[in-house]
């Protein structure tokens, strides 16, 4: 299995072997830590199905200098334990790592109770916390090393379900705090017709859209977002100055996700290009196959291409 959850386990084992004082906090979610549990069982704390207590325990562990990593369903970690995240962790810039799984539609038939489509919106109201989502196995390994091991402070990392994930690249570029990973070239340079910023596994849709648009003669640049918060202002200024359209793709509600965080970041900029935001409907989610649910929300290459072309051609911003 080479999905992002497997990479998290591998990343944690590496960090422990480097001597980092990682403690894995399970809320009846020990499958997220299986590799750690097999090799270093004393590094696992099992809290049972208790997100609030689990999050508070993380605060206590972090105050004592350990690096707690809590992982479980993103919905429950971000909603039921939100107050602990805010009051006990973020307010004090504690070194707690929250790895929310089953984000977007990846919980599939588990339906709206288990689909995290508002997690970014909820947590992005909080100062201090880093919000990020790696796109594949290798990217998760790099981000685990950087954000769980090297960076000191609260982190929320979005991950998917077990299995069924795509791997896009064998190697990724070095992580830079708050910076998107350029995929179309080593560094970003304009001018281009459209910049696409894709979050997580939607990098796959982004790649397909790029291929389609390039065939039609458009100049396109694709980023793997990696970060939702913070975002490098310098990077954003460079992007806004060099394109006539920015597109965001995310497996999250269109309300309060990457698109909205980006839009808020543009405040005060001299020049803001046209902007298209693709994401889930703001209606809690549905039961079904992930691909079908993405399709239902227009999160597929053909639809994204169509709307980009229409926007570029007549200047209409289409919802």
């Amino acid at each position: 299995m080479s999905d992002r959850r497997a990479a998290l386990q591998e990343g944690l084992v590496r960090l422990i072997e480097e001597g980092k004082e990682i403690v894995c906090v399970s809320v009846d979610s020990a499958s997220r830590f299986k590799k750690v549990k097999d090799r270093y069982p004393q590094r696992i704390i099992e809290c049972g199905i208790c997100e609030q207590a689990g999050m508070g325990i993380c605060a206590g562990l972090a105050l004592q200098g350990l690096i707690p990593v809590i992982s479980g369903y993103a919905t429950f970690l971000t909603m039921r334990a939100f107050e602990q995240v805010r009051t006990d962790i973020c307010r004090w810039f504690l070194n707690v790592k929250i790895c929310g799984t089953d984000t977007g539609f990846s919980a599939q038939y588990a339906g709206f109770t288990h689909q995290a489509l508002e997690d970014i919106a909820i947590l992005s109201t909080l100062e201090n916390i880093v919000i990020c989502e790696p796109c594949d196995y290798e990217d998760t390994l790099l981000m685990s090393q950087y954000l769980l091991g090297d960076f000191h402070g609260p982190v929320y990392m979005r991950l998917g379900a077990r299995g069924g994930e795509e791997n896009f690249f064998e190697r990724h570029r070095e992580i830079q705090m708050g910076c998107f990973e350029p995929l179309s070239a080593e560094t970003f340079s304009g001018p281009v017709d459209v910049v696409i910023i894709a979050l997580g596994q939607l990098v796959g849709v982004g790649m397909e859209v790029v291929e389609r648009l390039e065939k039609r003669g458009y100049r396109v640049f694709l980023f793997n977002a990696r970060f939702v918060k913070p975002l490098s202002v310098e990077m954003l200024q460079k992007i806004t100055c060099a394109t006539s359209l920015i597109v965001t793709l995310e497996e999250h509600s269109k309300v309060g996700g990457l698109g909205d965080v980006l839009w808020r970041s543009f405040q005060g900029f001299d020049r803001v290009p046209r902007f298209l935001k693709f994401g889930a409907l703001n209606n809690f989610g549905f039961s079904g196959k992930r691909v079908a649910l993405l399709e239902k929300c227009g999160l597929h290459a053909q639809r994204v291409e169509e709307l980009i072309v229409r926007t570029l051609n007549n200047g209409l911003e289409v919802r």
Binding site: C58, G60, D88
Partner: peptide, 15 residues
Amino acid sequence: HGLPIGVGFALSFRM
């Protein structure tokens, strides 16, 4: 909020 934090402290001392 206090008891969970206290349990975290106690677990840390134990570890």
